[in-house]
Each structure stands twice: as C-alpha cells, then as structure tokens.
Write a protein that binds this DNA or RNA. Structure first.
Lengths: 337, 337
DNA sequence: CGCAAGCAGTCGAAGGACGAGAGTGCCAGC
DNA sequence: GCTGGCACTCTCGTCCTTCGACTGCTTGCG
C-alpha cells in the first residue's frame, strides 16, 4: 500500500507529533530521521499521504498532523507490544512481588500501577462473577427484621444482599433457611442460581423459612447487574495531557459511568483490537482519545480486562508494553490464588 | 465590625462575583442592589473593604474580587444552611425513597446525588468500622492452602482477608478454627480484637488449628488501615467549574488519595467548621477550592461525613443546604437499617 | 460630616499593522 | 525520480492605538 519511504515518513511524523504536539513540517522529517532525501521529496510524499488520508493540515502552510488513519497505520506496523523500559519493568516486578491479599485492593492498586507506568488514566475491570462458583452462603441476622445474605465465591470475591423481612424472625428460622440455601446453591455459579426451581427449593419447609429462601434467591438473581467492578486510576495524569478543560470534563463524565467504561473495553476486545484510536472507540466524546486494552487470563480463562485511556497522541509503544506486561502478571498472580 | 452598608456592599460583590466570575465594579453594585447610594460612595466603601482585607483588585482599574476573608464573612453571615429549592428537594426525596439495599451501593449513589445537586465534586466517607461489632466470622476454604476470613459487622459491612497457609489443610481443621474464632470475637468490635490474648485464644487447640487462629487474628488486627471507604462523584462537574487544566489535574491528584480526602474532611469538622475556604482547607493545592462538609449521624453517633468540593466561588447557600439535607436523610436512612 | 458629582488617570482587552518564520506547492533541471 | 529554488500563504508575536471600565481624588452641597 505504502512504499517503504512513505511509511518511514509517516512513522516519523507520528513520532514527532506525539513528542511535541506541534504540526511537523517536511524540513524536520528530512533532517531528523534515517531518510536521506531532501525536504522537497518529503513534501511530495507528504502531499500523497495527505491525499490518501494519513495526514492532515490544520491550515495551509502549517506542518502535518496524523489522522486517525495515520495513527492506525503507525500502531499496526508496531506489530504488538515491545519491551518495557528497565525502570518500568523493575516497578512492575516489585509491585507484583509486594502485592498480596484482597482482590479488590489488588485491582485498585493495579490501576494505580498502570497509570503511574503510562501517565494516562488506567482502567481495571474485575473478574466477572458469573463464572465463579459459590463456595459458601450464609445468612447473618443484623436486627430483628434485617438479614444479610453473604455469598463467598471461588475467586475470593463476595456478594452481599440485605433482606428486609416483613416480620420479626427468630434465629432458629434463619438457621434452617441457611442450611437449605447452602445445600441448594453451593457449588453452583451465580448464573446457575437463576435456574433453581423456586417451588422445589422450598418444598417441605415451613412458611416462614420458605419465605426467607424465596427472598434470598430472588435477590441473588436480581444482583446480576452490578457484576463488574471497575477501578480507575490516574485521572489526574489524564487531565494533564489535554489542554482544554472541556475535553477533560467530558472524559471524566464518561469514566464516571462504570457501565459505559466496561462496555467500551469489551467492545474493543470483541472487535479483536488492542488499541482503539479516536472514533474507533465508538464514543463521540472520546474523539481525542485512544484506548489500549488487554484481557487478563486467570486459570486459562479470560477473567477481565485492563486498559489505559489517553490522548490520541499517546505513546503507543509504551502503553502497549505496559498494558501487556501488567495484564500478564496480573493474570498470573490471580491464578496462583 | 462592618457597618450595615459595607456589609451589604460586600455581600453584593460576593454574589455577583460568584455568578459572573468577573471582577465587579462600583457601578454594578450601586445599580444592581438594594443600596441607594451613588457609585462614588460605594467606591469609598470598597476602598475601605480592600484596606481591611475583604476585597482585592486583580489590577488597578479593574473591579474587586472577594478575598478568602471576604468569602468567610459572606458565609458566616449566611448563618447556616437555608432551604433547598423545590426541584432539588424533590430529587432528594425521591432518591431516598427509592434507595435500599447495600450500603456501599447506597453511599456511592449518594455521592452521585450530591454532585448532581450541587454540580461540584461530592465526597462521601463511609462509617468507621471500628465502632461496629462483629456479628459473624467465617472461614471459607478457597483452595487447599487458601482460606478466606469473612467478617460480618453489625452495620452490614463486610471485612475480608485472605490467608495463605503454609501447608494443605483439611476442612475439619478449618471448622475447628472457625468455631473457636466465632466464640472469641463475635460481639466484639474490630478494635476489640486487638486486645484478645493470642496465647489464651489458642489454648488447648492442636497445632494446625491454632496456627490458623493466630494468622486470622493477626490479619484482622493489621486490617485497620483501609478502614474508611470513600466514594467520590461528580469530578466532571468539578472540572467544568475551573478554567485551568493544571488546577483540575492537581485537584484530581488530591482526590485520588483517599486518605488525604478523609483527613481533609475530618480536619475541617474537627475545627468545628462546615465550610473551609481556600487555604483554610489546609492544603496548598486547594487554594482555589472550598469545601462544604457535614457529618451524618447514625443511631445517635457520628458515623461518617459527606462534603462537596468546588471552586472558592461556589454557590455556598445551595451547597450548604444540599449537604445538610443529604447528611440528615442519609443518617436517617442508615439508622433504620 | 456624610454623600454625590465630576474629572483625570490607569490599565487591560480588543483590534489592526507588520515583519519574521515556518511551511507549502510547483517548476525546471540534473 | 529526486532536488534546488522560488513564490506564496498563513500563523504568531510584537507593537501601537483605541476603547471602555474602573478607580481615586477633589470639590461642593445639605
């Protein structure tokens, strides 16, 4: 499609623009790269590149700026994540050797790590609960009419639901319900709870016990929506890399909607991409942004995804490496547990 | 201190500046307020107000801008939160009638409510776990060497800790440890766990059981640090009310540090204030910001605090009312549960 | 003495002129 | 097919001027 020299020129323009945020002119490219042709030749090629949609001019007699198509070419020819710098990979290593304990804490810390590596906003989407099996279910009575259902899942996360009962209920009743529930759902997935036959479930139990069981199961089924946990870090870094408050505010508005963020990442992954540039993100408000994503794999299965969000002129190579390495290590660490 | 007319003038300047973000001149004040004096007189008074530190001039021949002292006077003479507007109080009412269920979810939603009411960033600090008593403790074995300690507290929140055991452990052993732990800590506060005598705790138990008990108790003691949960909403609104990206980025950096946020709010409350203006916040990076805070009370005790963070030129009356009403209703709702 | 009216002075914001600089497109020639 | 040269374009910074919005002060009036 593009001959060797045009590709090199395009590469040079993109790199330079990412570095300086200034339109880059033919002179710069001619002098500061491995091309040994004159600026006039570069000019001709740049005109072609513009005609083919890889570059754009903010105005006549200014240098060129990469278009989304230009960035896309640049990213594609990078051909996957490279090596991480020495200090960065040291940082990753020390993070994962130090980290332990709660998954939530760890995912949240991971988003901080990722943003500190890349200086962009980092998003970490927690494992989907649906695939995990139920290890334990327990009813805890908080007050006469309030009962907490605590479900422990095989991946170490916890689902909880508050039940408000219509009438005061004795501990004995709660215990019976607890036992029955355990035998019903332990070993199932959360999704599997949906297929439990409500009527069969309460067969032979007294009225008050069966009421609790019904309520608890219904709650568990309804809980599907806030399945995904999202951890976001580095919004301040993100803000610093834009120059219009308006843009920053719009991006923050997106990031505040966790559902949108999750589907954003998943859309990108579904399309088989690891980078979405500008409008490729599918979100008009992110026209000036790019997203770099990777899934992480726990015990052989894709568990969740991580990503960074920055300006279209982001350091793609660094971001790609950072995301890849962190996703890899994160999956590894979670698999051990 | 300030005679009636000077106070009125100061009030007028502050209101006007909050509205327009433009320095306000003597002409404006003279024409657009209940003062019936000429602009020349206003000018004289404004000169005095400036000399006394209530107003400042960006440059000669510009209008006046309130100083922190000016805002402080303005806020003090407001004398506490007023009524909320009709639509806003409708919004609050419908929110609290609709809301139910998980505390985390509710606090997070509350931060969204508060930011949507005020159009500033909203901070909700969750109840301190230390005062809650332990309702139940349970050990769940996730794999041969990994055990999850799940602690249910009386306020409905959950603490969990992962234990990594040195050797494969049978369920029987875990069950014994579970029983012993329950008898030890149920009914205590989390802080109270600290005073349990480790040696007495494991008296008479076999080696493997006592190891688990020790590990679990130690973990629970160490867990004190991430006590407070912080929920932040409306960062996009906050961003929109500043005009320098730099400022926004710095504020976001503060908000990313949950510990800092918590102590920020508590410092303000400790000083007996409900509003901190500019440097009163005690944080240099928040020189252009003000914070409005209120504690919320659950079952007669101060449980946590909520607040909004906006520019020094914020709508103090609205913010004060919103924070007061929401804190009140939140405390109420949590008390019922 | 307090207030108002008038007036001179100050300063920033807005707008226009202008040159410098960076970059382009194109053409002719090697 | 590449290059040097050249004319042209457009932005940006600077300078200048004008305009307008203020202020501070002085003076006069009740």
């Amino acid at each position: 499609m593009l001959d060797e020299r045009k590709a090199t020129i395009l590469r040079a323009v993109v790199t330079e623009y990412i570095e300086t945020a200034q339109p880059v002119g033919s002179g710069h490219v001619a002098s500061s790269s491995e091309i040994n042709v004159s600026s006039a030749t570069v000019r001709n090629d740049m005109a072609t590149l513009e005609a083919e949609g890889y570059l754009a001019q903010p105005h006549t007699s200014a240098g060129r700026i990469p278009t989304e198509k230009g960035y896309r070419f640049f990213v594609d020819q990078l051909g996957g994540p490279g090596k991480l710098g020495a200090t960065e990979s040291q940082q990753v290593r020390s993070f994962f050797s130090r980290t332990h304990g709660e998954m939530e804490q760890m995912l949240s810390d991971t988003s901080r790590l990722l943003s500190s590596l890349t200086h962009y906003a980092a998003v970490v989407v927690g494992p989907q609960l649906e695939v995990a099996t139920i290890k334990s279910i327990q009813l805890v009575s908080l007050s006469a009419r309030i009962v907490l259902v605590v479900v422990v899942l095989s991946n170490g996360s916890i689902e909880k639901h508050t039940l408000e009962l219509g009438a005061d209920t004795e501990d004995l009743v709660i215990n019976s319900a607890d036992l029955r529930l355990s035998s019903l759902v332990v070993g199932q997935t959360l999704a599997g709870v949906g297929s439990v036959d409500l009527n069969a479930a309460v067969l032979g139990e007294p009225e008050d016990v069966s009421l609790i069981i019904r309520t608890a199961l219904t709650e568990l089924r309804g809980g599907h929506r806030h399945d995904d946990q999202v951890f976001i870090g580095g919004t301040s870094d993100m803000a610093a890399s834009f120059d219009a408050v308006r843009t920053v505010s719009e991006i923050l508005r997106i990031l505040e909607q966790q559902l949108v963020v999750v589907s954003l990442l998943e859309d990108v992954l579904d399309r088989g991409l690891s980078v979405a540039i500008g409008r490729e993100t599918g979100n008009e408000a992110l026209a000036d942004c790019s997203i770099v994503v990777a899934p992480y794999i726990v015990d052989g299965e894709t568990a969740g995804s991580i990503g960074v969000l920055g300006p279209t002129r982001m350091h793609y190579d660094q971001a790609l490496s950072a995301v890849a390495v962190v996703a890899n290590r994160l999956g590894h660490t979670l698999s051990e547990g």
